[in-house]
Design a protein around this nucleic acid. Structure first.
Lengths: 112, 112
DNA sequence: CAGCATCCTGACGGATACTG
DNA sequence: CAGTATCCGTCAGGATGCTG
């Protein structure tokens, strides 16, 4: 049986999780429920505003998170996980567990 | 709690699965047990020899697959999943199932 | 506060040709 | 058969500065 990568179902699930900060953002929103842009920015050490916005928009486009804008001064924007996004929790949890179980077997790119 | 992406455990598991052909290769070897280079090449429609070798080497470096060389003429090289690689099966399966359950909700980059 | 606009770099991956 | 060797294009992601 021949197959192209686009027809691999695993590839589909994988592709929406790929992004340097996406898993962390999802995990945060899954546990916190709701976070403001600034809260996320503080939590995600080293992220630039551009990247944060970028990752949030992509997650939003996939329907995994929702964005609520409060038209106030100063502005306030809240992000939260959607029901759909929550369906990814078992996958993220299993990946977390797997990494914990095999943390002794170090990745080649894990240094410092 | 502040966190960097490198310290997100999910990121670790994710990073070894990332690669255009890695999930498919793993799935093949998980179900077939053992495959020759040429078999994989035929199975993975559109892959170039360079990419196939590249992806195989990286999976091997992580210890997920093993490479057996038979010094014959013509040469014969067999790839198979390792026990360690097999521990990823539940994760790949859950991602596959998740994609099947939510295939109606189409990804934006899924066309043609 | 919550972004947007630019510029820039490097890793990933494609195409093509060659070899022990 | 099972790879190597080159060249090249794309794009995720970093750095920096500006704004409604």
């Amino acid at each position: 049986m021949k197959i192209k990568p686009e027809f691999c179902k695993v590839h589909d699930a994988l592709s929406i999780l790929v992004g340097k900060w996406k898993p962390i953002i999802l995990l945060y929103l899954m546990s916190e429920g709701t976070m403001r842009y600034g809260e996320l920015k503080k939590a995600l050490v080293g992220i630039t505003p551009k990247m944060l916005t970028n990752q949030l928009r992509e997650l939003e486009e996939e329907g995994l998170i929702s964005r609520e804008v409060y038209r106030e001064v100063p502005p306030k924007v809240e992000y939260s996980i959607t029901e759909y996004g929550m369906t990814l929790k078992p996958i993220l949890d299993s990946m977390h567990e797997w990494s914990m179980e095999h943390k002794n077997r170090k990745l080649k790119n894990t240094m410092d």
